[in-house]
Nucleic acid binder design. Structure first.
Lengths: 224, 224
DNA sequence: AGTCAAAATATAATCGATTTTTTACGGCAT
DNA sequence: ATGCCGTAAAAAATCGATTATATTTTGACT
């Protein structure tokens, strides 16, 4: 799989980083799995150095676990951790959304409408998952973009990535999906109406429902 | 400077990481400075691979900036960013403190008292800065430790590191320092009294004052 | 059979050298 | 003088091979 040829100003290391991040998010690696470095080396046809650098970055970011002298592992999926991630998302994205509503300008309103529209179009093509994921992430980023805090945005991004490891693994839930899709539009409406309180409440509910979908990644309740 | 010999289970990469992190926090590198990799290589007597891996991790963590094909740079100090960091510290540490007060058990109370006591002793030995920094960090970590969210703790740690880049560079402010030292004790008292609201308010004030001290890292107001 | 230790194997970490890209410099035309 | 192009030097990124550590296997002994 000679996937990393003819790049533009990018470094091998950064290309592998992006690729691996995407694959980790999409559950292409078994949770808890040990990373076989030389296998990846073959698979992407790169040297050890850029590969290891990418793995180091992913570990610092939290998408891998690094143990001295024992290489890298994919973090296990853990109910408590998912709950933690969801709870933090509610706190931080709620905070960011309120601030965005206070500070966002007319240009933001336009971009928000555009992002929501693109996402809505994608909602109707369930076959193009990658495209939908892309637009979905972009919509949520747009929503909180003008919050004014670079660090808050950074943390939110990181939490989204963590959350997506679970959500993308969960089975489809069409009824909830429809509600979630509707909420995207409602979030825009509340943002444009500058109703911070209601927007925050809706965001809370949106993340809570997503969390319940993501719980599906643990398989159908072995406790029932 | 053959500083990285005879290690115990640690990897060269992780040793350099710790060393560089510490030096970055202590302002041993000029803000905005370009990292001369081969100079560091000589200085710590290590190969390029572990050094670059450490730099990659530090960049992912936010203590360095990485630009494709242009190596690594120390982030500039920026008033707006410091404000952002302080604001986020107020939000996140406030949140974590409230939760700790709700959830912390008797063992936590003991450790908190111990940590505060150790810190107080160190307050009186202004010559042992490193020791004080160590105990200060530990005190603040203890304060929020039982908040129940690993991710919240992670973000707080990261923000502390960012904040310290500024604070440790700022000139001493003995009067404010005395107030801040006193507040550590008061925080413990409020935590033990389980007065979440007052504790949060005090933490807010504590961080705000620290922020004002840290502003000193920009030199004496060129705008006056 | 089960257990421990030593040897063998596999994997992680590191090094030294090479390749690629950027940056600095100097001539040349405008 | 100023700006552009090509070359030289420097630095970043990468590779291939080596060393160190962990894991597995083997085989003697209980």
């Amino acid at each position: 799989m000679r996937a990393l040829e003819g790049r533009g100003g990018r470094t091998r290391s950064s290309l592998i980083y992006d690729t691996l991040r995407e694959e980790l998010l999409n559950g292409r690696f078994q949770a808890g799995e040990k990373i076989a470095i030389s296998a990846l080396k073959e698979r992407y046809d790169v040297g050890l150095s850029p590969l290891r650098e990418a793995l180091n970055r992913l570990a610092a970011y939290g998408l891998l676990i690094q143990e001295n002298q024992k290489g890298f592992r994919v973090p296990r999926l853990d109910r408590d951790e998912l709950e933690d991630i969801a709870e933090m998302r509610r706190e931080l994205e709620g905070m960011a959304l309120v601030r965005s509503i206070e500070r966002g300008d007319a240009e933001w309103e336009s971009e928000l409408l555009a992002a929501a529209h693109r996402l809505k179009r994608a909602d109707e093509c369930p076959e193009q998952v990658d495209e939908w994921e892309h637009l979905h992430g972009r919509f949520h980023r747009t929503l909180v973009a003008p919050c004014g805090s670079a660090w808050l945005l950074r943390f939110i991004e990181q939490l989204h990535d963590q959350f997506d490891r679970y959500r993308r693994l969960a089975p489809e839930a069409p009824e909830v999906r429809r509600v979630l899709d509707t909420q995207h539009g409602e979030l825009v409406a509340l943002a444009l109406a500058r109703d911070a309180r209601a927007a925050r409440a809706l965001m809370d509910d949106h993340i809570q429902r997503s969390y319940e979908v993501a719980l599906g990644s643990f398989g159908e309740r072995p406790d029932a």
